[in-house]
Nucleic acid binder design. Structure first.
Lengths: 187, 187
DNA sequence: GTCTATAGCTAGATAGAC
DNA sequence: GTCTATCTAGCTATAGAC
């Protein structure tokens, strides 16, 4: 077997970045190829079903990120709930690069791509919500209070990413993260 | 002069709908033409600079909507601040069709279109924020409290539209609107 | 002002050499 | 596994008849 020129993980990182910033229809195969450092035909060798398979893989990869960096972290009983919240918020800050990066859910839920990926988007959002619901319960909220607060948390993250971009002001994202943290720590 | 087959206002309504749901790159001229009921060449007669001019016109049209349906309404001194908030929220509910429609800022701030329309998006978001800032001040908040609350309001609207779509649950949008209303009426 | 027809290009996807 | 070359369909945009 001929060696891979670019490793899978590097390809995923590039695809994530391009789909996030350009959306599904906006990300052309030419650009996806350039950003990964492969030629178009080589990308098709990795993803035989083409662009849709690439976006599906991106959603899958980011779903695993949520499992590992949010869900597990927020449930870690070796840490206090306060520590967990602070670390979770820090992971989110890093993942969105302080608000410079947009969210894949937003990028892939416009137009045709909403229908193509609705199952994965729904499942991904549910994971976010469940992760925050768990920590709410650990902090003493009832199940329904925790559910509502978790949905609010996701809403604020999504909304602040949009407004941060539109207003070109990273402070908006940071303020929102602080506000979310305070919601959990100073109820 | 030959009579217009389709009136300007009808064209705008169709363009708004298509750009909102498909985004900029996702909205093809073929579809824009079909949805307006004109042929492509006729659309170019109305918008000689093409697709970009259509999207610009859409942003301008929706900016006027904010001026007339939010800014003016929220400042109307013939009504109590409570009445104004309730009516403003009702206008927003109607405009987004209870959460079924997405927001133009979100639709036009991905990929290339972010650069094309950043000035208009920034101005449009500023109008939203100023409208809500004014009502906050009328309700007794300080300028900086009102500013922060207005930004939060926009964040919640944007975020709830995203999450409503992703979770396919209109109740999320409605709950958020109620929550926003309560923030202003029961501080 | 609206239309048919089409130019010129780029999109996603494939064939086949190495 | 990666590449160059290429296919076809769709794209934005325009020309010119009515």
């Amino acid at each position: 077997m001929r060696p891979q020129k670019v490793q899978d993980i590097e390809i995923m990182t590039s695809l994530v970045k391009t789909f996030r910033s350009k959306g599904y229809e906006g990300a052309s195969l030419a650009e996806l190829a350039t950003s990964t450092g492969l030629k178009k035909a080589s990308l098709y060798h990795r993803f035989p079903k083409g662009k849709q398979e690439m976006a599906t893989a991106v959603l899958h990869y980011l779903e695993e990120w949520v499992d590992q960096h949010l869900f597990t972290l927020l449930l870690d009983e070796n840490k206090t709930p306060e520590e967990r919240i602070k670390m979770g918020i820090a992971e989110i800050r890093k993942s969105y690069d302080h608000g410079k990066e947009t969210c894949i859910f937003r990028a892939l839920s416009l137009g045709q791509s909403l229908e193509l990926f609705e199952v994965q988007i729904h499942r991904g959002m549910s994971k976010w919500i469940n992760a925050f619901k768990n920590i709410g319960i650990a902090l003493g909220l009832t199940a329904s209070e925790a559910q509502q607060q978790a949905v609010d948390t996701l809403i604020k993250i999504q909304g602040s990413l949009i407004v941060t971009r539109g207003m070109n002001d990273l402070a908006i994202f940071e303020t929102t993260l602080k506000e979310i943290q305070a919601t959990y720590l100073n109820p």
